[in-house]
Design a protein around this nucleic acid. Structure first.
Lengths: 329, 329
DNA sequence: ATCAGGCGACAACCATCGGTTGTCACCTAA
DNA sequence: TTAGGTGACAACCGATGGTTGTCGCCTGAT
């Protein structure tokens, strides 16, 4: 006869609380369900484990005898699960959009808890990060998520970062205290890579009527800044909190009416690594502390491609269960 | 997430057999049912545990990692079941040395508590009682314990009973009020069985220089008394409190200077049956009430073979924990 | 290449299990 | 006596776990 460990778990919690209602709450089930679990366990063992009374329950002698070995059976089973799931393995995470320094956000979120063991992956773009997730080569990824996104992956918006215009110091608008995006329509959008493969910049150009663009290779931030400074008509976009070297050839000007927002998300597969829940929680907590998820449609602009991520965030905040949401351990 | 142990059992058996059909047979279920169990376990764990092939299955790496802890979880659960179930099973006890009426002492000790549920075993000698203990055919045994004693068994001295000489009424010493053992050296020791297999009688003969002995079959007390009365030179030994029929052909004479003591012990395996502690306690309490454990080396004689039992008793009275001491519930 | 046999999985079916909500019997304290 | 708390019963329904029948795949022999 093999024990049903869900029943055993119910017994052990009820033995701790000596109150079925409270034990049920700890297990997030109803009192009646817990009562039934214990009754079925008693029936299977042929033993009364609790004396029921008006003010809670008391353990019987058989219940007392069962309690310690029952706890040990649960612990052994948990170890068995951990052994197969390799729960002590670090969570492997890849980030993309390196020019915009995604690791700032990951490091900030992970810094507050010592239980997260992260291992940084190779550095990929979104399509190859998604493929690596599906192949279980990595456990999570972080960056800006947009369609197309393969099935089987779950994403969670964790940060909406305001985006500034970054200009050559010789640009005619360089000394403005702030700019409206459409003021940039006659400038040349500088893109580190092909525009049609950079979703955010592409959507920005379309939305605000920027007709001209120039492309270069993405060889890192210094190269990017030097390419911008090389032509006084050039501008590009940069999330506001990206740290920059002090250089007289470059100006950073806030964008307003509307402020474009860069949407950072976590991405993972299925229920994820055992630490996935903890990682999501760490990001959510940091977002709360820093007001990362504030969004006002009358003030801000999000490209259409970021709206699924936004919808994802609102569903979760409404208290509904998100499919494939990892449980925090 | 709590494992379903029926699923785990199916996995462990399939891992042993590497053949779903054979594992299913061992569990008396269909192959399809076993296949479903394992598939559900894999789904729950999110891990493939077997690679399926045309000629059976092979364990995956995850399956290998799971196998030992899975077995341990099953064993822990079995122990938990045993802990709660066993206590209501009667404690099976065998006694030996029937001529000396061991059940007097057992009954006397058990009579004072209603919680002891004893079941008398088949009646064995010491070697076969020890084997039955090791095979878990019985839970405890009672009689005179002497080497050789197999490993894994624990014993506890519970009674030192004075031994009388039992004589034919025609014996030259029959009318003495008491006898010193060496007064019997020229008599014929009557033994119910081969002397070299009767440790106490053998040691007595050696110690007090009794050179002659005669053997007969052990066919019970009446037969023993009739064999004694058949020859006026015969004597034997009998614990003092063994009830005897009133018969003019037999005399019981106390032995003094020294008084030989018959050492009765309890014997059990490991931590024993859940009632083992209570049984030991009952004997110890009765021993205290009846001064069963008094021993004065200047007055009494114990054969060398009884000294381990004596040492065992003294260690326990010193307050030290005896290894494999059963816990009283 | 074909056939036969072995193996595990899928499909359909059905009884049991395990959760829910609603309600009730019992107990205790005021 | 009343009010509030507690655990169990009843009805319902979806999931689980077993069965039988069948199929797809694999391997070895001819």
């Amino acid at each position: 006869m093999d024990l049903d460990l869900a029943q055993v778990r119910a017994f052990v919690l009820a033995a701790e609380e000596l109150h079925f209602g409270q034990a049920a709450e700890k297990l997030s089930i109803s009192q009646q369900a817990l009562s039934k679990r214990i009754a079925r366990l008693e029936s299977r063992l042929g033993m009364q484990l609790f004396d029921r009374g008006g003010q809670g329950v008391r353990l019987t002698e058989a219940g007392h005898r069962f309690l310690e070995p029952a706890g040990q059976a649960l612990a052994a089973a948990d170890l068995a699960v951990a052994a197969v799931l390799d729960v002590h393995r670090p969570l492997r995470i890849d980030v993309w959009g390196h020019l915009y320094a995604p690791m700032r956000t990951v490091a900030q979120a992970a810094a507050r808890t010592s239980e997260l063991r992260l291992e940084l992956g190779h550095g990929r773009d979104l399509p190859s990060a998604a493929a690596a997730l599906l192949h279980a080569d990595i456990d999570a990824a972080f960056g800006r998520v947009h369609p197309p996104l393969p099935a089987g992956l779950t994403h969670r918006l964790v940060r909406l970062e305001p985006v500034d215009a970054i200009l050559s110091a010789d640009h005619p608008l360089a000394s403005e205290p702030a700019l409206r995006p459409e003021q940039l329509r006659d400038s040349v959008l500088w893109t580190p890579g092909a525009l049609d493969r950079l979703d955010f910049l592409h959507r920005f150009a379309e939305r605000f009527g920027v007709r001209d663009h120039a492309e270069g290779a993405n060889l890192g931030l210094d190269h990017f800044l030097a390419d911008l400074a090389a032509d006084p008509r050039r501008f590009s976009l940069l999330p506001a909190d990206v740290p920059l070297p002090q250089t007289p050839e470059i100006r950073l000007v806030p964008l307003v009416e509307p402020t474009p927002l860069y949407a950072w998300s976590l991405l993972w597969r299925g229920r994820g690594h055992p630490l996935m829940g903890a990682l999501v929680n760490a990001f959510v907590a940091e977002a709360g502390r820093n007001r990362w998820l504030e969004y006002d449609p009358s003030r801000d602009w999000l490209p259409e491609s970021s709206l699924p991520a936004l919808a994802n965030r609102f569903e979760d905040e409404g208290g509904r269960t998100v499919a494939d949401s990892p449980r925090a351990d």
